[in-house]
Design a protein around this nucleic acid. Structure first.
Lengths: 215, 215
DNA sequence: CCAGGAATTGACCACCTGGTCAGAAATCGT
DNA sequence: ACGATTTCTGACCAGGTGGTCAATTCCTGG
């Protein structure tokens, strides 16, 4: 996974030479950190809060991750693949409509099942992506370029309405992630969530209608 | 403006009884605060940084806004109308296509001209909207309900493709704000901004095609 | 069973940051 | 001109937070 490798190269991994059962702790820490970072952001997150949520003492957490930044980086790294993989796999299905339908569905499932990861990613990008910038400008950029070419071919073959493929991707990302990142607003306005299958279907239908030009 | 009033009722305004020329300072402070809050979030924002950006000393800033929370609230309040007004004015144009075209265009202009305000709003909602919740569940909810009815009427009259109007609004919001909130990503992937008229037109065209079902 | 490394902890510290305060400038009404 | 009020400032403080450290407990391999 190139993205992971690139990100790994950005900073030295802080958790070295662990051999014993502490790996379970690392997982718990990362889960807790994701939950806290996704709500309070990097600056607002208290490392005590993360430790408590993970069931550890603060110094014990610092034993696994030397600094808050290391922990943040690790969480980001674990999250990133979830973001990239669906797009990378979009071409495996040869039928354009099926491929896009599958992609949109996976993005919505992602928004439903990992809203915290989506929020973390959003916050990082909104901060100016100080950490992810390198990944964006390389791996993601290449990936988008190749997918754009694919989409353009599909459009020219008449399977999709013509438009700029990159903007189309933006629209898919923005809308699907909206349900995760702005779930508070969605909840306030509709009282529902993607967990509700009917609501999920409505959202999916709306996006697909927009992308494919038909239901 | 009901939204402003509601927000004002949420907390006591901190800047009282100013009569002299300090009003200009208040403006400068609000501008600076918006810039800083939009990048670093509430927790990450340093009040020193805001003061410096506004060209004041920290205690002097605190003279105008007693606490950081007061300042945050004031910035949020000033921002909110920009968000609500376009939607509220959507029906003034009787032609459905023109009305939606105008709305999308205004939202994109807003994303282009006030990206920081958009980001601030996004961050607040992503935090769980601890302050804006009341506004969302009342003013915005009512507004959305009325606009949904309008959209539904238009769909039934055959002016628009049929779909859930609330999801349609979500899609418009998500996509237009994406260009402001994720401008780092947009920039990294395309090297362009909404400031570029051609790019603006592409974005606009993509959204309109999705919303109206035709260009 | 024991030695040695891994895991864990309480106590601690340096530093940052929001906020205070007494008083100095600046400004205004009269 | 002058008192009163607003505006502004340097110095300061209390609380919180990231991170350290010596010391203890827990495992595990031999």
């Amino acid at each position: 996974m190139p993205a992971t490798n690139r990100l790994a190269a950005l900073a030295s991994p802080s958790q070295a030479g662990k051999t014993r059962g502490g790996e379970a702790n690392v997982e718990r820490i990362l889960d807790a950190a994701l939950a806290v970072f996704a709500v309070d952001g990097f600056a607002g997150a208290r490392i005590d809060a993360i430790a408590e949520r993970a069931g550890l003492s603060k110094p014990n957490l610092l034993y696994y991750f030397r600094t808050k930044a290391d922990l943040y980086l690790a969480v980001l790294r674990r999250t990133l693949d979830m973001w990239l993989v669906p797009l990378a796999e979009m071409d495996t299905q040869s039928d354009p409509v099926a491929a896009l339908t599958g992609y949109v569905t996976r993005k919505l499932e992602y928004a439903r099942d990992y809203p915290e990861a989506s929020r973390l990613f959003a916050m990082e990008v909104m901060r100016g992506a100080p950490i992810l910038n390198a990944v964006l400008e390389n791996d993601l950029k290449r990936l988008v370029a190749s997918r754009s070419a694919l989409l353009t071919r599909w459009m020219e073959a008449g399977h999709l309405p013509r438009r700029d493929p990159v903007h189309l991707l933006f629209m898919i990302w923005a809308t699907t992630q909206h349900y995760a990142d702005f779930s508070t607003q969605v909840q306030a306005l509709t009282g529902r969530t993607l967990e509700d299958p009917a609501f999920f279907a409505e959202a999916r239908r709306t996006v697909l209608l927009a992308v494919l030009g038909r239901a």
